[in-house]
Simulated scan of single mutants.
Amino acid sequence: MTDRHTDSPEELATEAVDLLKAFELTEYEAKCFTALCRIGQGTAKEVSEVAGVPQARVYDCMDSLQERGLADAQQSKPRRYRGSGPDEAVDTLERRVDEKLSRLGELLPQLGADAREEKGGEIWVTEGDAEVAERMARLVGDADTEVLLAVAVEDLLTDTLLDALRAATTRGVAVTVGSPAPAVRDAVASAVPDATVVETWTWWESHPIRPGAMSSVLMVDGHSLLVSADAPTDLPGVRTHRAVWTDGDDAPLVSMMRPLLSQAIAGDETATI
């Protein structure tokens, strides 16, 4: 992990420019704003020298930054510019992103019928530790009555998933989490105090799980199901998790897994996965 305290001002500025570009600022705009953050305020010539942007382009960049609410201009000769404070700038960018996400949330449902209303029993695949945990969190977020989760590895127990489990208990959903790993059980018990946490029977011979072994099973309201397993990657020594999941109870996999998971969570060692 990089020690941010050892980064030079130039390295910090370069990283800031890269991040600002992700918020639809051009490279020159991002460099000019970062320069203002470094010097507080200055003329176009001073901004140009610090940012490494041609002075003729600084004026256009400042006009754009003013329109975005990220800079102010002083009507003096020569004209001086001042950037928004760090907190104000972040709030401005966050507000613009929230507005776009809100609008996108309005538009997308209007583009067509919900595919889940037209088809049932479809199986989907998700790959990556964070992606699998995020999918589990979304399934838990839709829970109305019951969540059954058996999980063997801490990799999948992200803050997002724990937050979703805690929110589910707040809604009155019965949440039961089982694991053969003490660290997983302790983490869930601490983060989700209203959940039932149990030691499952162990279908993994040891911890961490063996390559290719099942790493989690989640069932929500008796019909949404996710099953994940350890999976290799193209990088040597690096592994991840791959999951198959469905949010409809028409899939044969759901009817097969429902009694097995229920028995596993209950500690019935006669079940076999």
Rank of each mutant, 00 (worst) to 15 (best):
Val132Lys: 03
Ala152Trp: 00
Leu157Arg: 09
Pro252Asp: 05
Pro211Cys: 04
Ala113Pro: 08
Pro54Tyr: 04
Leu20Asn: 04
Gly105Ile: 02
Arg171Gln: 03
Leu93Tyr: 02
Gln110Leu: 14
Arg82Gln: 15
Met257His: 09
Asp268Ala: 13
Ser84Ile: 03
Asp60Val: 07
Val125Gln: 04
Phe23Ala: 15
Ser215Gln: 03
Ser216Cys: 15
Glu88Asp: 14
Arg68Phe: 09
Asp72Ala: 14
Arg135Val: 11
Phe33Glu: 05
Met256Thr: 12
Pro236Val: 05
Pro208Thr: 11
Ala113Thr: 10
Gly248Thr: 12
Glu117Asn: 13
Ala168Gln: 04
Ala183Asp: 14
Ala133Ile: 00
Ser102Pro: 05
Pro208His: 08
Pro86Leu: 07
Leu19Asp: 12
Thr92Tyr: 05
Asp142Gly: 11
His223Asn: 08
Gln55Leu: 03
Thr92Ser: 11
Thr240Cys: 12
Thr43Trp: 04
Val175Arg: 01
Ile273Thr: 12
His207Val: 05
Ala56Thr: 09
Thr92Phe: 02
Arg239Ile: 01
Val17Lys: 07
Asp7Glu: 15
Leu36Pro: 10
Ala271Cys: 05
Gly69Val: 10
Lys21Pro: 01
Glu122Ile: 12
Gly237Ile: 03
Val188Pro: 00
Gly141Cys: 04
Gly85Val: 04
Glu67Pro: 02
Ala168Val: 01
Asp159Arg: 10
Asp63Leu: 13
Ser8Pro: 05
Gln110Ser: 15
Gly42Glu: 00
Ala89Arg: 09
Ala195Lys: 01
Ser216Arg: 06
Val227His: 05
Ala30Cys: 07
Lys77Leu: 11
Trp124His: 14
Ile273Gly: 13
Pro54His: 14
Ala164Gly: 03
Val125Leu: 09
Asp7Val: 07
Ser206Asn: 12
Glu11Val: 01
Pro252Leu: 01
Ala168Leu: 01
Asp3Phe: 14
Ala167Gly: 10
Ala264Met: 12
His241Cys: 03
Val188Gln: 00
Gly222Arg: 02
Ile39Val: 15
Pro252Arg: 06
Asp230Met: 04
Ala30Leu: 06
Ser216Lys: 06
Asp98Cys: 05
Ala113Val: 09
Lys119Leu: 15
Pro54Asn: 12
Leu107Tyr: 07
Tyr59Asn: 11
Asp159Met: 08
Pro109Ser: 11
Leu108Met: 12
Ala51Met: 09
Ala133Asn: 09
Ala229Asn: 08
Pro78Leu: 03
Ala137Phe: 01
Leu93Asn: 11
Leu218Ser: 09
Gln41Glu: 15
Ala22Ser: 15
Ser224Trp: 00
